[in-house]
Design a protein around this nucleic acid. Structure first.
Length: 884
RNA sequence: GGGCGAUUAGCUCAGUUGGUUAGAGCGCUACACUCACAUUGUAGAGGUCAUAGGUUCAAGUCCUAUAUCGCCCACCA
């Protein structure tokens, strides 16, 4: 019959149209002062990344925004790129060279970095290729990488600027140290996780006491979760108000195992209620103790090597791993009778966000950014609504974090990253901050100069992404045109790492917001609510879904089940809905195309409106389309993608296909119908395109010669024709459908098979409505599959008729096998239901306060409904009485 | 310790400023392939909207507790 297959095959279309778009350069964003810009910078995936469902959701949303605005006539730019992901990438490459039996130290810094670049050359574009599979309409020619030469310039510029402003400083503090990655981490990179720990009670003897005979008076018991750190204790602290210990402040204790003398100090920070009320103080391995150490001028004893083994300060425990040492120390204490008791104790500890190793609070010299001054405008901007979060609740999370912001540790002891632009003179050790290596020391003119070994936190480059991608600090035309960007789409866990910092950087370096709207989508989880992760083995691979169901199916299903900002629970079956919908679009289009006369595709709708009014059915479908389109737009503007997608879905499937196409089948060759069905399809495809780019393009191209644009992606978004929205017609047609549904329902209830002819008579005592129903006679016969449909003004009981009441109508079906008992039962059932409905309504309307206080229209509405119910009841009772 | 989210049909979830008979997808039941589509169509069954109070003429929706699950934050020794 035709050459279009009955099943949509995504494999034949997706790559074809993606290359087509790329070859026509349709993704490119250019400065065009005549148009408004709409720009998004992609959250740059890690260069080591492999596409997962989180990416799929994140990028589908961005692509919808971009494609929608492009069609809306904005000059759009979606800036793509990848992040060098310092620690993650270094770990990956270290693993790779480990297969050759090599450590990075074996290669040396320079050679290792070379290997990383090689690795990037080979595998770094994987994620980009995968994003293309998703249909992402990024301007790929602009692809950026946070380690690019130009980008690095921006990073150095920022470091030097902040340093000169006094916002970057170096100092020795307790930081989060990952003993596995052997680097410092920021607070955000060391999230707290619950750990099942124990609280150990250890006796510290007073110096004055007889060590052979310990009693409650001769020692202080401290409680600790980390007994191994006792080797570095330099005091025991108690609350000065604590009556139990007050008198002991200033006395000396003998630190067990080490036999070092330590003082008892008083400090109000000590919680009298926790443990024993006495706390061991280890200033080099605990942030609280560090503060106390500073305050009370205690000694700082660093116990560990960077890899987490104990160092020479640990005496006989030297070279043991910290957790191994814990066990040995506990045994030794036990042996000496100093371990009073052990209690289970839940606590939370920082974990490295890259390798999940428990963080060691570690005293070391690092570089920091003073955050409070940077935070100020970033707080203001959000409070004043210059930047909006969607959903709104994230505003509070953001503000809570940024109002309590801590200084940012930005130095990392790894090799892969932007090297810190600080140089030292070997002679005088003065740090020199400079974008390029200075030839001599400005202080002592020494020429033996070396660079700081550390690199910068990856996020110290990512936070510049919205403007550094436009070659800032150059004032490029692109930067001036596309910045601030329009929207940012990302996941909640990135708010602190990236979103907040971009806002701060935006103000500090551009004196402006970096984006207006921040859309935070949910986390993709498996059907049990677990986060998808490789280690859990619960991953649904988007590429596999694309392969099996098609990209449009993936995109549509993901979007339709993602309510704004809610987490997404996924199972593979979910994608069947998207696939089925694509197939539905495909087949409806196939049907229309095979019936469409070419000359009718060029006719303008106005012609029909001018000459005569369109038929009701045609008016109705146009009105419905524009009503839905309007809602779709409203939801897109509010970032309610699922609502928008589902509106289009149910319009197309249930209104356009189930009703409209079925209604017009008998008159499909009429010119008016041809034009209308073509227009609705063609406009629907455009509205659908941002969600399902490939199938819409494929069909668009099948319409070739019938449409104006070379690609649907640059066709204009359909303009809402307000004057075509006709709620009266919509209501009328709804009445028609209700009638048809009621007849179908009767057929089904009476178990009359579809192939059996039935005769229906409608009794209706309303001239206008009868005229309308009569004009719809053909449609009713066709869709309810009747052999005959008659109208009569007044109801009278006829033999062998099964009669139901729908509003002001009696609908009578003539039956061959009439079961009077069954009929009576059905009528009585309806009467009972009707009566109870009336009762409820009457009660409502008898309630004085309802009638007095509810808005008049609501009351009026209820009155009308009551009247309708009463009328129906009367009719039903009449029908029942007629039977006897 | 603080904060956030969730609790609605067998399952997974929508539900806008409070206002008809609380919706969808999947699953289930019955029927239907000469018909664009069986990745389909028609009809149907299925809900004390977590619990307890409260506000209101009116609550799935607003308020207060409680329970369960999940997430985030915090210098919990």
């Amino acid at each position: 019959m035709n050459e279009i297959p009955s099943r949509y095959n995504p494999k034949e279309t997706e790559d074809k149209w993606y290359s087509f778009w790329e070859s026509k350069n349709l993704f490119a964003g250019k400065v065009d002062r005549a148009k408004k810009p709409f720009s998004i910078v992609i959250p740059p995936p890690n260069v080591t990344g492999i596409l997962h469902m989180g990416h799929a959701l994140n990028n589908t949303i961005q692509d919808i925004l971009i494609r929608y605005h492009r069609m809306k006539g904005f000059e759009t730019l979606w800036m793509p790129g990848t992040d060098h992901a310092g620690i993650a990438t270094q770990n990956v490459v270290e693993k790779a060279i480990a297969k050759e039996g090599l450590k990075r130290q074996d290669l040396g810094r320079e050679k290792f970095i070379e290997r990383v670049w090689q690795w990037r050359q080979q595998y770094g574009s994987t994620i980009i290729r995968q994003l293309k599979k998703l249909g992402a309409s990024c301007d790929w020619k602009r692809e950026r990488f946070t380690m690019d030469e130009e980008y690095s310039k921006a990073v150095l510029e920022v470091f030097v600027k902040l340093y000169e402003k006094g916002l970057i400083y170096q100092g020795s503090y307790i930081i989060n140290w990952c003993p596995r990655c052997q680097t410092a981490l920021s607070d955000e990179e060391a999230p707290h996780r619950d750990v099942e720990g124990k609280l150990y009670y250890i006796q510290y003897p007073l110096k004055s006491a007889d060590s052979r005979q310990l009693s409650a008076e001769s020692c202080i018991v401290v409680a600790t979760t980390r007994p191994e750190t006792m080797l570095g204790d330099t005091a025991v602290a108690v609350n000065p108000k604590d009556k139990r210990y007050k008198h002991l402040i200033g006395k000396t204790l003998i630190l067990p195992l080490v036999n070092r003398e330590i003082k008892i100090i008083g400090d109000a920070i000590v919680d009298m209620k926790f443990g024993t009320g006495a706390v061991k103080v280890t200033p080099a391995h605990d942030p609280n103790d560090y503060a106390m150490g500073k305050k009370h001028h205690l000694e700082f004893i660093n116990l560990m090597y960077p890899d987490g083994r104990l160092n020479e300060n640990a005496g006989e425990y030297k070279d043991m791993d910290r957790f191994e040492a814990r066990e040995v120390i506990l045994e030794d204490l036990q042996e000496k009778g100093l371990l009073e008791k052990t209690e289970p104790h839940a606590l939370s500890a920082g974990h490295c966000y890259r390798c999940h190793t428990i963080i060691e609070p570690y005293l070391s010299k690092q570089w920091f950014v003073k955050m409070k001054p940077l935070a100020k405008p970033a707080i203001e901007a959000v409070k004043k609504g210059k930047i909006k979060f969607y959903p709104k609740r994230w505003t509070k999370v953001y503000l809570n974090w940024i109002e309590n912001i801590q200084d940012w540790c930005i130095s990392r002891q790894i090799w892969w990253g932007h090297r810190i632009p600080v140089y030292y003179c070997k002679k005088c050790q003065e740090p020199i901050v400079s974008k390029i290596k200075p030839e001599k020391c400005p202080d002592c003119s020494g020429t033996d100069i070396y660079q700081d070994e550390d690199v910068l936190d990856t996020w110290f480059s990512s936070w510049l992404w919205p403007f550094a991608t436009f070659y800032w600090p150059q004032e490029t035309e692109d930067l001036k045109y596309f910045y601030p960007t329009s929207a940012l789409v990302t996941a909640p866990e990135i708010i602190f790492f990236w979103v907040a910092r971009m806002i701060m950087a935006g103000f500090e370096f551009r004196k402006e917001i970096p984006f207006k709207d921040v859309y935070i989508h949910g986390t993709v989880r498996d059907i049990e609510g677990k986060k998808m992760s490789k280690s859990l083995g619960n991953i649904i691979d988007p590429l596999e879904i694309i392969n099996e169901y098609g990209c449009d199916a993936l995109r549509f299903s993901l979007i339709s089940i993602t309510a704004q900002g809610q987490d997404v629970y996924l199972s593979k079956e979910r994608f069947e809905q998207g696939r089925n919908f694509a197939n539905k679009i495909w087949n409806a289009s196939r049907f229309i195309l095979t019936n469409l006369e070419r000359e009718n595709t060029k006719t303008d709708l106005c012609v029909f409106f001018k000459e005569k009014d369109l038929s009701l059915v045609n008016r109705w479908i146009l009105s419905r389309f524009y009503s839905v389109l309007k809602e779709v737009e409203q939801n897109l503007e509010k970032f309610k993608f699922n609502e928008a997608a589902n509106l289009l879905y149910s319009f197309f499937w249930h209104e356009f296909c189930d009703w409209y196409l079925e209604l017009i089948k008998p008159e499909i060759k009429d010119q008016e119908t041809q034009v209308v069905m073509f227009k609705v399809l063609e406009k629907f495809l455009r509205a659908m395109h941002p969600f399902m780019p490939f199938i819409t393009e494929e069909i668009w191209q099948l319409l070739q010669g019938k449409t104006d644009s070379e690609s649907i992606m640059v066709a204009p978004w359909p303009h809402i024709q307000e004057q075509i929205i006709d709620k009266k017609s919509e209501k009328k047609v709804a009445g028609l459908f209700e009638t048809i549904t009621t007849i179908r329902n009767m057929r089904s209830e009476l178990e009359i098979p579809l192939h059996e002819d039935i005769e229906v008579k409608i009794y209706l005592n309303n001239k206008v409505k009868t005229a309308f129903m009569q004009s719809m006679q053909g449609h009713i016969i066709h869709l309810a599959k009747l052999s005959k449909l008659d109208f009569e003004q007044t109801y009278s009981h006829g033999q062998g008729q099964f009669v139901l009441v729908l509003k002001d109508m009696h609908i009578a079906v003539s039956l061959k096998n009439f079961d009077i008992a069954q009929y009576k039962a059905k009528i009585n059932q309806r009467i009972e239901k009707n009566k109870s409905d009336i009762k409820a309504k009457e009660a409502m309307l008898k309630n004085k306060s309802f009638v007095e206080r509810a808005p008049a229209e609501i009351v009026e509405n209820e009155r009308q409904k009551l009247q309708e119910l009463k009328d129906s009841l009367k009719k039903l009772e009449g029908v029942r009485d007629g039977i006897n």
